[in-house]
């Protein structure tokens, strides 16, 4: 079976590296009956519409990012925002996978594809160019590159969130168009931010989890059961490998930051809580919108928040 695999990431990225190892493993465990050709770095698949592209058969398998879709896949796309305040990716992943089992709508939304792995983003923090942030009041007046999800929270504390493309961010930090960026430890090295920021403030912006690897459903249906079984047996392996690689990249990022003289600032727990609270209303709004569409939004939100209170 000659199958194609497409990813928007490169093999130097932790996700791409996990895919590479996974491909080797699948080929080995099927005794070479499955042979996979990989296309990296957006050469065959986009991140915004990857699910649709996979569904249409542009590739047989792909790294998908339903969270970056501009519409559709409501539960998959919107519920990761419910994980605000979480700081342990492993915990996020556990809670999320639990949700997937409990609410079949997650899988139904991705009906045209068969999910083969999950991804959890490591938490992002505040990286600053000139001035440190020790309390949330220090955010006032700062211009910060941020994903759309965090712009509202930044605004609460008088900071401006800028949804600038990632490619522009480095020069913008270098020249001071931006005062900072919300990005994970890993980006200190992988995106070279360690070279242009002075401070790393551990104010968490959790990213939640999502179904990240999948196979086109028709291709899946065409495979014999024993081959399908190999893929199914490796869902957890791939998911864990991905997390492992991400955590390693976090460490490398931290080390690079230290090397570049970045000052790491630990912010008080009370401040973190105060910050997390600002996400409450927008999360509730998202949940209610989902409810209106007949989806279990509030139910999921409730569950995610409860799991946070009881352990994390």
């Amino acid at each position: 079976f000659n199958l194609t695999y497409a990813s928007p990431y490169s093999t130097t990225h932790p996700y791409g590296a996990a895919d590479e190892a996974w491909i080797e493993r699948i080929e080995e465990q099927t005794n070479g009956r499955v042979d996979i050709t990989a296309y990296w770095g957006r050469s065959l698949i986009s991140s915004r519409e990857g699910v649709d592209e996979l569904e249409a058969g542009i590739a047989d398998m792909a790294y998908i990012t339903p969270i970056y879709a501009t519409s559709g896949y409501e539960l998959n796309r919107l519920t990761p925002a419910f994980f605000y305040g979480y700081s342990d990716p492993a915990h996020v992943l556990a809670v999320y996978q639990q949700l997937w089992e409990e609410f079949p709508t997650f899988a139904e939304e991705l009906g045209g594809v068969r999910v083969l792995g999950f991804n959890v983003g490591t938490p992002m923090h505040l990286q600053l160019r000139d001035d440190p942030v020790n309390t949330l009041d220090d955010l006032r007046g700062l211009r910060i590159r941020s994903a759309n999800d965090y712009i509202g929270a930044l605004a609460e504390f008088g900071a401006e969130g800028v949804a600038m493309p990632m490619g522009d961010t480095y020069p913008a930090l270098q020249r001071g168009v931006l005062d900072g960026v919300i990005a994970p430890y890993e980006a200190l090295k992988s995106l070279s931010f360690g070279e242009v920021v002075e401070y790393y403030v551990d104010l968490p912006h959790s990213r939640g989890a999502y179904a990240s690897r999948a196979m086109n459903q028709a291709v899946w249906d065409s495979l014999p059961e024993d081959i399908q079984a190999v893929f199914l047996d490796n869902i957890d392996w791939l998911t864990q490998k991905n997390l492992e690689n991400s955590m390693e990249a976090e460490e490398e990022g931290k080390a690079f930051g230290v090397e570049q003289g970045v000052t790491f600032i630990e912010i008080a727990a009370s401040e973190k809580e105060r910050y997390a609270e600002t996400f409450t209303s927008s999360a509730r709004e998202v949940a209610e919108n989902l409810d209106e569409r007949g989806l279990p939004g509030s139910e999921i939100l409730e569950q995610v928040r409860q799991a946070h209170q009881t352990s994390d």
Binding site: T12, G167, S192
Partner: peptide
């Protein structure tokens, strides 16, 4: 340089 940024991100090489 846009191309250097693309290369830097693809390979995790220092953009600076």
């Amino acid at each position: 340089s846009g191309m250097f940024i693309i290369y830097g991100i693809l390979t995790e090489t220092s953009i600076g």
